[in-house]
């Protein structure tokens, strides 16, 4: 789906707006703090997935008020953004687990060199 040249979709295009937001808010992967940047109800989907550790297609469909096939497209993009993990077996109502590990972000990499040198001496 291409949005970048034409700008955000019209307001009544729910699926288009969700996809556009996912494509554009975080430029690459979705990190935990990126969740704050999303608008509702997309944020609610990410919050629920983070809090419970998993979310199903039917839950996403309900939260986003989209038919399952459209909700699946949103999920696929969230998987691509590495926030959800694709289940080994899909079935009728696949459950996706959150994937928050393996996304190291340094807490502080801006310490002055002289302080880092002193830390090395410890």
């Amino acid at each position: 789906m291409q949005f970048s040249k034409s700008g955000p979709p019209k307001k009544d295009d729910r699926l288009g707006n969700y996809m556009w937001e996912l494509e554009h808010r975080p430029q690459s992967k979705i990190l935990p703090s990126d969740v704050l940047k999303f608008s509702d109800p997309l944020r609610a989907v990410l919050n629920q997935a983070a809090r419970i550790g998993r979310i199903s297609l039917s839950e996403v469909s309900k939260l986003l008020d989209l038919p399952p096939e459209q909700a699946q497209r949103v999920i696929d993009l969230i998987v691509e953004k590495d926030f959800l993990r694709r289940p080994s077996s899909l079935g009728d109502n696949p459950v996706y687990e959150t994937r928050l590990a393996v996304r190291t972000r340094k807490l502080n990499d801006e310490l002055p060199k002289e302080i880092l040198n002193k830390l090395d001496d410890l």
Binding site: A50, A101, K106
Partner: peptide, 23 residues
């Protein structure tokens, strides 16, 4: 341990591992 706190300051850590660990 001072050295281990220093290592955290220097290298950071994978915060996502915390959630896995909590669960």
């Amino acid at each position: 341990k001072a050295g281990e706190i220093a290592r955290i300051l220097r290298e950071g850590y994978d915060v996502g591992l915390l959630t896995d660990g909590f669960r």
